[in-house]
Design a protein around this nucleic acid. Structure first.
Length: 296
DNA sequence: CACACGTGGAT
DNA sequence: TATCCAAGTGT
């Protein structure tokens, strides 16, 4: 992967050309979409598919068009509006970030990666996604899509290994052209390629703009032999499941949910109590002064 | 660093 | 039906 046979510039160039030719028309790619809109969309897109995010995003931005608008609402309203996007703590984090933006940055989403990283719920991916896609600065943006495309096209492996921030950022950075705008396109294009062509299950290599440059394809699609991801635990009957049932009840309620109502949601008291205690500890639920439980 | 954290669609 | 997967982050 060094010297004259480095295919990375060619890969980046072709993926960028492919993206410029055509790509999905997504709300956050509209001209004039605000930095706040980008930030909200990135929070929602953390582990939730694009198709489920779009309607919620529109509602959210209609209701809270600026960070200050969200900061002025109770955190529980953010959790309620989050609806069934999943991982409701993200709604809490987004609300906290809105408060921090209002307090620290005069209500304007910061441009610096360091300042973005200091906000609750923003990590390596989201900080750089905002800096690049909203502000146009040059940073590597690494998500599950780019990790997979790099693993295949550059490293010849069917799947990316376990995430390693330092290494992953460097690998993406090595694909970026010098120009800020061109680099932003490569970031977006690598994500798009991973999302619609170089997908996890059945990659559509016949439609891939870098098929002839792909190291994985060139070596006959060798089976992945690296470290495997841990086995995903069953959702049915898990603590997550019980937490989800309780949160659904809290979102629907506009008066305190009683212990009896909570008890009706899950038969095993030990697990039920553990789930509720976890939600209280996470700040997703609070005890009402009248008894019962409410969103914060 | 491995794990916990929701939810629903696809295979 | 069971499993995989989805624009990750915090601990």
């Amino acid at each position: 992967m060094d010297g004259a046979d480095d295919q990375r510039p060619a890969i980046a160039g072709r993926v960028a050309d492919w993206y410029r030719e055509d790509h999905r028309d997504l709300p956050w790619r509209r001209p004039g979409f605000t930095a706040w809109g980008t930030l909200v969309s990135e929070f929602m897109l953390q582990q939730t598919p694009v198709a489920r995010v779009i309607p919620r995003l529109e509602e959210w931005l209609d209701r809270w068009p600026t960070p200050a608008d969200l900061a002025a609402s109770p955190a529980g309203e953010a959790v309620r509006a989050w609806a069934n996007l999943g991982y409701p703590r993200r709604a809490l984090w987004l609300h906290a970030a809105a408060v921090q933006i209002t307090e620290r940055h005069g209500g304007d989403v910061p441009r610096d990666v360091e300042a973005l990283l200091a906000l609750t719920g923003i990590g390596d991916y989201t900080a750089r996604a905002v800096a690049v896609f909203s502000f146009g600065d040059r940073h590597p943006v690494v998500d599950t899509n780019t990790r997979r495309v790099i693993a295949r096209a550059v490293h010849g492996q069917g799947q990316p290994g376990p995430p390693h921030a330092r290494r992953d950022l460097a690998a993406m950075d090595a694909l970026l052209p010098d120009d800020d705008g061109d680099a932003a396109v490569v970031n977006a294009a690598m994500m798009e390629l991973g999302a619609v062509v170089c997908v996890a299950r059945s990659p559509r290599c016949d439609e891939c703009p870098v098929a002839e440059l792909c190291a994985w394809r060139a070596t006959g699609y060798p089976a992945y032999d690296g470290p495997t991801k841990g086995v995903q635990k069953a959702y049915e009957g898990s603590d997550r499941h019980v937490r989800g049932l309780i949160m659904r009840e809290l979102r629907a309620a506009h008066v305190p949910v009683t212990d009896a109502e909570i008890a009706s949601l899950w038969p095993e008291s030990v697990q039920r109590d553990r789930a509720l205690a976890g939600l209280l500890a996470d700040g997703l639920a609070v005890r009402s002064s009248r008894g019962g439980y409410l969103l914060p």
